[in-house]
Amino acid sequence: MIKIKELRKTFGPIVAVDGVSFDVQKGQVLGFLGPNGAGKSTVMRMLACFLTPDSGTAEVCGYDIIKNPIQVRENIGYLAENVPAYSEMSVGAFLNFICDVRGLEGKKRKEALDKAIAMCHIQSVYHQTIETLSKGYRRRVGLAQALIHDPQVLILDEPTDGLDPNQKHEVRQLIGKMTQDKCIVISTHILEEVEAICSRAVVIAKGKILADSTPGELKSKYNCSLDEVFRKITTSKVA
């Protein structure tokens, strides 16, 4: 469902993404790992058609990110790293705005709203203004926004960052429930999360892919914990 071919993006003299290629199939949860500044968010932003690659391209659900950005965006749910939202709006008004944009009307809208709100446990803050929410609730509203149209592809940039252990567990369970009929890409620093929910792990540093395997295989290949695998790969191969 996602096919990335030789994506490259530079910001001035900085090469953020340098020839990244990989495919993700339906039913896979791909953990996108890497140190800060590795290029994870840049790849995700290009997949969500927010950034245009300098060269290379990608297909999401058969649509090219450069030629058909609107169709790509219709088919994905994207949660950005800093959970952008209109802070002066109430949660309800914000989610209704997303429904407006995504063309969910009438009965469909009500069902979509009810489902997303129940999934993300945000009933209690429905009438609250987004700027008054805690970090955890804000992120859950962001998740609800990404899930509301039941997209085939989910791109989540650090979805559990800032959540308490209970909330992290809930989000992981939520992702676990959706794996069968979706294709999910998650970036994270939390390696236990990769072990818990990801069927595949791609390690990236300085814009290049350094490893692409399952978490289990990585562990057995290096014969150590995933934390150590991450350190070994990102420090030795980059240096």
């Binding site: 932003r45 969500a48 058609c49 927010f50 609107i70 169709q71 965006r73 219709e74 994905i76 994207y78 950005a80 800093n82 952008p84 939202a85 209109y86 802070s87 997303i98 944009v101 995504r102 926004q145």
Partner: peptide, 14 residues
């Protein structure tokens, strides 16, 4: 400034 532009332009809006 608030970054909500990233939300806006990752929704199906030209």
């Amino acid at each position: 400034k608030t970054g909500s532009i990233e939300l806006l332009f990752t929704l199906p809006i030209t």
